[in-house]
């Protein structure tokens, strides 16, 4: 696909808008990922972070950490990327209709959740209360700031942000995102949480959500392992008996709780 637009989000993280060379649409479910190929440098699994209601343009937010992602982030508008996908499981948005939804995430974890937020806003009347709890190291490390500002202005989506530290111009919360869960969260009854962060942070988020009254079966999370093929054939992404690339990346927490409790699995 061709890069039709590129935006630097924050240091080392870029968002790409892609369109097929021959036109056409790219349909996906929120939470799914693509294998992105950079000529000669290799293929990397990257979550889709755009609006599932706008299949004309595929959106990926990429952090430059390895050879392939560094080369990817150096690509310019007009250049090409190989795209295989979409792969993997999705946030079960249809199944969650009628529920209150709380998104809990930090850092780049917002990228895989953003399609679910779009989905919810596109079908707003099908869901109850919606809350986005998002944390970053400092205000400059928040992703999609313009969009966060727009979302904060809506009456039908509560946005709570926390940063690890901030200068006096920041008027929001300061602290770790997990402490916002207990401060923000009010009604466990009919609420489901969708969370995405580093694995250790997600365990802390689950702990907070449990304390707030959510059961393990009310929590969905997106996991990460080494993914080479995306097809369940290469074996790299196994976490115990599951293949993250085809059974995941999105799991209901109670299905993987025992696996996440193990070291080096």
């Amino acid at each position: 696909m061709v890069i039709t637009k590129k935006r630097r989000e924050i240091e080392g993280i870029h968002t790409f808008w892609l369109e097929p060379r021959d036109g056409g649409e790219f349909h996906f479910d929120p939470g799914q990922f693509n294998m992105l190929y950079v000529f000669g440098a290799g293929e990397v699994p990257i979550s889709i972070s755009g609006d599932p209601g706008k299949p004309g343009r595929l959106v990926h937010t990429v952090r430059a950490v390895g050879k392939a992602t560094q080369r990817l982030c150096a690509l310019k508008t007009g250049e090409s990327l190989g795209v295989r996908g979409p792969f993997g499981s999705a946030w079960p948005m249809a199944q969650l209709e009628g529920k209150n939804i709380v998104f809990v995430t930090s850092g780049l974890g917002l990228a895989p959740l953003r399609p679910a937020v779009y989905w919810l806003l596109n079908h707003r009347q099908r869901y109850g209360k919606a809350t986005l709890i998002y944390g970053a190291r400092n205000p400059r490390r928040l992703l999609y700031v313009d969009e966060l500002r727009k979302w904060r202005g809506r009456f039908d989506l509560r946005v709570e942000l926390a940063v690890g530290s901030a200068d006096p111009t920041w008027d929001g919360n300061i602290g770790v995102v997990t402490s916002l869960v207990s401060k923000t969260f009010v009604e466990p009854g009919n609420t489901v949480a969708l969370i995405c962060s580093s694995e250790r942070m997600m365990r802390a988020m689950v702990e907070q959500l449990n304390q707030a009254g959510l059961n393990d079966g009310d929590i969905y999370l997106s996991l990460e392992r080494s993914i080479k093929c995306g097809l369940g054939l290469c074996g790299h992404c196994q976490l115990g008996p599951t293949f993250i690339c085809k059974d995941g990346p999105v799991y209901r927490y109670d299905q993987v709780k025992g696996l996440l409790a193990q070291r080096e699995l």
Partner: peptide, 19 residues
């Protein structure tokens, strides 16, 4: 204790970001 746990999680996030 809760503050200390939260602080340690923040340190962990920093380490993650530094890779």
């Amino acid at each position: 204790g809760r503050n200390l746990d939260a602080t340690h999680l923040q340190i962990l996030e920093l380490i993650h970001e530094h890779g």
